[in-house]
Design a protein around this nucleic acid. Sequence first.
DNA 1: AAATGAATACCTACTGGTCAGTATGTAAGT
DNA 2: ACTTACATACTGACCAGTAGGTATTCATTT
Lengths: 194, 194
Amino acid sequence: MKQSPKLPAEKRQAQLIEAAMKIIYKKGYAGATTEAIAKQAGLSKGALYFHFGNKEDIFFAVVKEMSGRHFSIITKSLLEETNPQKGLEKMIKNALGLVAEQKYFTLDFWNHAKRVKKIADYLENQHNEIEKELVAYLKKNAGMTKKQGQTLYLLLHTLFDGIVVRHQCCPSCVNFERLQKDVMDMTKLFLHKR
Amino acid sequence: MKQSPKLPAEKRQAQLIEAAMKIIYKKGYAGATTEAIAKQAGLSKGALYFHFGNKEDIFFAVVKEMSGRHFSIITKSLLEETNPQKGLEKMIKNALGLVAEQKYFTLDFWNHAKRVKKIADYLENQHNEIEKELVAYLKKNAGMTKKQGQTLYLLLHTLFDGIVVRHQCCPSCVNFERLQKDVMDMTKLFLHKR
DNA sequence: AAATGAATACCTACTGGTCAGTATGTAAGT
DNA sequence: ACTTACATACTGACCAGTAGGTATTCATTT
């Protein structure tokens, strides 16, 4: 293999992260060999290791990238609507869109991430950040208390996680439209009952 | 190591299955070496392989055993109550009890199971069997149509899955009592709104 | 009752494949 | 010429599965 022209570190790393995301998504963490990741990026394993200390660092970089994208999509959805019902609906719709388009974390990601403390901590922190955003949004636009906002978030997150699992374990069972409607009903109930 | 006295095949296999369950629960499928499983059973790897063809067969046997126990707990809960609200509550309570007591499938189980067709098929079949039981129960005791029963099951199952995920990714986030109450509210809503 | 032989359930040492990570070489760029 | 980003060949740890050995058990024979 001819040596690739050099690239600035951050461009090269972004390329490697994209490649790793694809392979890990497809084969799971264990199945994603560093060889396969390097090949997907059109580079050598040596190049991969030049940029990342070990396989776990690669995975962490992938998780951060994906998590950042999710965060961005969610907060953007909320920002676009001041009506709480509409804001939540848009958020739910877009979040489920990620799953349907196979752009969200899989069971395998979770399974590995939770075993690595720094990654688990990072994801928990992201979880808290999103919660903060939503709670602030609901407080401002729906007059909810912090506690109520947190409860709604937990419930929605739980439903969402469940949908991810269902989608992966039994794709034919999951009717996204139906579930989206149910999740929205839940949201409505919560907004009007508190 | 002194050779263990012989046991009837089914007793020995049950012993190995229990051992495998423990180790796989603790370390995940990949982390559960055949050596560790054998050691947990107080036997040798050779003995393990005498009874099971390969590691996957061991895992399949474990999944079947656990799944059978879940099925039994769920159907028993329903049988004990003819009042639908009470029956569902008992079922939900006992199901969540499995999770809280760390007796239910983990992300790791799912993650591996879904990659092995015969296991995925088996679990899907179990899923359908439980659905049948619940649908029949709701039809008989709540006058629900099959479709409605199926929808409620999917929703409950989704919530349940989400709770499993939450519990594993962030144990401190999961207030079982709170979530149980929310799940029951969901159920109530469904029972009264249809 | 004790001895013997056969079957089989179990044990131990081994094999070979896999792959994360590394040492060394070299091409790209200044 | 020098630095560094990248490539290649290699290393060693790990572990599922296997081959050969042996202890346990039961049935038969003495």
